[in-house]
Simulated scan of single mutants.
Amino acid sequence: MTMINAESNADLKSMVKKGLTLVDYGAPWCPPCRTLLPILKELDRDLKGQIPIVKVNCDDLPDAASEAGVMSMPTVIVYKNGEPMEKLVGLRPKNVYRQVLDKHR
C-alpha cells in the first residue's frame, strides 16, 4: 500500500514535488476523516499504488494545513509536480477522487 504519513512540512513538500500525488488533510478525531480512510485505501488498491496517497494530520502539521488553505476537514488536494491542481473539501464518494486523479494524469 502506498498511503504515506507526512512527518513534517518539508517531508510533505518533497512528496508532492514530482508527478501526481493525492494528499488527505484530516485529523484522527474527525469522524468524516475516519470515514474517508477506507475509501482512500480502496482507491489505492484500485490504482495498484501507482499514485502516492499522503495523509497529513492537521493537528501535527498545522503549518502544512495552513499553507494548503485547509479550512475544514477532510480536505483532499491533488498535486501535480508540486502545484495544487484540485481541492475537494468534505467527504466525497470514491469515484469523485478517481475522476479528479484521472483528469490530471
Rank of each mutant, 00 (worst) to 15 (best):
N5L: 14
N5I: 14
A6F: 05
S14D: 15
K17W: 12
G19M: 07
L22Y: 04
L22Q: 06
D24T: 07
D24H: 09
G26S: 07
G26V: 01
P28C: 03
W29Q: 06
W29N: 04
C30Q: 03
P31S: 06
P31L: 05
P32Y: 02
C33S: 01
T35Q: 14
L37S: 15
L37N: 14
L37G: 13
I39Q: 11
L40R: 10
E42R: 08
L43S: 09
R45M: 15
R45S: 15
L47E: 02
L47S: 12
L47P: 13
L47K: 11
G49T: 08
Q50E: 07
Q50S: 15
I53E: 00
V54W: 02
V54Y: 02
N57V: 08
C58Y: 07
C58I: 12
D60H: 10
L61Q: 09
P62S: 10
P62F: 07
D63N: 13
A64I: 02
A64W: 01
A65Y: 05
S66T: 13
S66Y: 11
A68S: 07
A68K: 03
A68P: 04
G69M: 04
G69W: 01
G69I: 02
V70K: 06
M73Y: 14
P74Q: 04
T75P: 10
V76T: 10
V78G: 02
Y79M: 02
Y79V: 00
K80P: 13
N81G: 09
G82A: 01
G82E: 09
P84A: 04
V89I: 15
V89P: 12
V89N: 11
L91C: 02
L91E: 00
R92D: 00
R92Q: 12
N95C: 11
V96H: 12
V96P: 07
Y97A: 04
